[in-house]
């Protein structure tokens, strides 16, 4: 069907759904006065039950931890799918020359960019590690720290050239990190089962309030999620960047490559 029919169907659907959306929006509890009971129960019970001060991390890694396990495997599958699709077409070699679009100027990297990105990459990686480690205490956790560290890995690229970046951020190490994260999470969920407890039961000592080690198994799961997210996003960045390299059969241009 062509575009006009599609737009007409969309307009019809919007017309039919608009009164329903309006009635649902007025039937939901007013903004600022929620009626759910799960959240306040978590806020009241979990600081004493798990010795943690970050309730979101407690919900993510302990109370609803199996949910997070499913989401970690989904991230793993998405990264594997992307890598297989990209490498299946391109092959597994690493391209040494930057791809070239004729007509676009080749801009040399500025010294200020290189310096700023080298400093910023180290700071961002350190900040990502800090956020990931403090998951159970202050706002942060495995996801946030892993995503911040992955963008720190990305900042290394403007600071170095491509082959140096690929040497500093090796693909095999990221694969191992991602797999290790997923494996640690699965073990943390399965080993209590072998001991006769529930899956992902908190069998480690709970630690002290407001300390880096607090929450027992939550610390292990936080670490596993951080590893998996850094490895997953780092692999995505590498594989995507590899798409912009010239394949081997292209003629070598006269100017210097980067």
């Amino acid at each position: 069907m062509n575009g006009r029919w599609r737009l007409a169907l969309l307009a019809l659907a919007a017309l039919l759904l608009a009164p329903l959306i309006w009635s649902v929006a007025s039937a939901l509890p007013p903004f600022g006065a929620p009626e759910a009971a799960y959240g306040p129960a978590v806020n009241a019970l979990l600081p004493g039950a798990r010795n943690v001060s970050n309730m979101v991390a407690a919900v993510n890694f302990d109370v609803r931890g199996i949910d997070t396990l499913g989401e970690e495997s989904m991230l793993l599958c998405a990264v594997v799918g992307a890598v297989v699709l990209l490498r299946g077409r391109r092959g597994e070699d690493r391209g040494d020359r930057a791809g070239r679009v004729p007509g676009r100027p080749i801009v040399e990297r500025d010294d200020a960019t290189i310096l700023a990105c080298r400093i910023a990459a180290l700071l961002v990686l350190l900040f990502g590690a800090y956020v990931a480690l403090h998951g159970t205490v202050t706002p942060g956790g495995g996801f946030q720290g892993g995503a911040i560290a992955a963008s720190g890995l990305l900042l290394v690229y403007p600071g170095e050239d491509y082959s140096c970046w690929r040497a500093l951020v090796p693909g095999t190490v990221l694969t191992v990190i991602e797999g290790a994260g997923a494996l640690i999470f699965v073990l943390a969920a399965a080993l209590p089962l072998a001991g006769g407890h529930a899956a992902l039961a908190n069998i480690l000592p709970l630690g002290t309030w407001k300390d880096l080690y607090s929450g027992g198994v939550m610390v292990v799961v936080n670490f596993a999620v951080a590893l998996a997210v850094v490895g997953g996003f780092g692999l995505l960045l590498i594989e995507f960047m590899e798409e912009t390299r010239a394949p081997e059969e292209d003629p070598v241009p006269d100017e210097e490559d980067r």
Binding site: G140, Q144, I148, A150, L154, L236
Partner: peptide
Amino acid sequence: LSEIAVGSAI
């Protein structure tokens, strides 16, 4: 934090 890292950088 998560949205800044994912939605504005990656």
